[in-house]
Amino acid sequence: MKYILYISILLSISLISCTEKFNINLVNGATNRLVVEGSITSEYKVHKVILSRTGEYFLNQPTTRELNALISITDGDTTMNLIDTANSGVYQTDKEIAGKPGKTYTLNITLSNGETYSASEFMKPILPMDSINYEYKKSDLPFDDKYYYNINIFVQEPPTKGDYYQWELYLDNEIKTDTIRLKTFVSDELVNGAYVGNWTVYQLPDYKIDKDTVVARIQMLSISKEKYDFYMAILLETDYSGAGFSGPPSNVPSNISNGALGFFSASAVCGTETNIYRVKNKSKSKK
């Protein structure tokens, strides 16, 4: 619901305003802090942790990766070591493995300089979705002539308060939601205990379906309130920042110890598939 609010405010400002590129010199904080991006899910796969450093704001190239760290994830009983085989700062579990909902996972990092960092999260169980479907529809936003495949889910939300969810979209096994701005995530605040039917989690512009049949898979993840707040904060500080609606710019929170940035999360996952059959495209523009 608040998504709709941010988008509407941005939209109404954009209706009366103009923008132009602006040259500004920013102070470089040069704190060179460690950034951790990692997760474990209940999906059977290789799980990753990426270590990097902060950089100058107008760096305009990749930030430095942190190499030669020792990383492990433990649930108290089992410990997995993560190895950076490509020496690229991307540390991976040495085999495919699935986390267990109901357990608390702890990430431990020891850097080559001896500094240690840790983070832990409880993997909250999740109820499976009943089904998904799709519907071919014109956008209901002004100045948007495009037609979309709206992908809808049907799921029972449990009566416990304070549940948070995230959805990912795969087309023919390829993830389409690989950046935070494309992911959908919500709180159960307004739907607690309700049967959530026909809820649009993705709007796919019709030109993205380029075959007669595409297999769409929706993955639903349980996330913590902290992860939800973290994602929301990232959007507020980036895509939504022009709304003047989020309060003053503030640093996004982190769940990593010792002053590091980023987030380590544990999520239970469920997924459902449907076939999307291409209709004749009606969109006039692709922009």
């Binding site: 920013l26 102070v27 470089n28 904080g29 040069a30 704190t31 802090r33 950034v35 991006e37 990097s52 450093r53 902060t54 950089g55 100058e56 704001y57 760096l59 990749p62 930030t63 690989d178 950046t179 935070i180 701005r181 992911k183 994602y231 990232i234 940035l261 980023g262 987030f263």
Partner: peptide, 8 residues
């Protein structure tokens, strides 16, 4: 004053 990369 700085940037970092996360989740694309």
């Amino acid at each position: 004053t700085e940037r970092f990369e996360y989740g694309g």
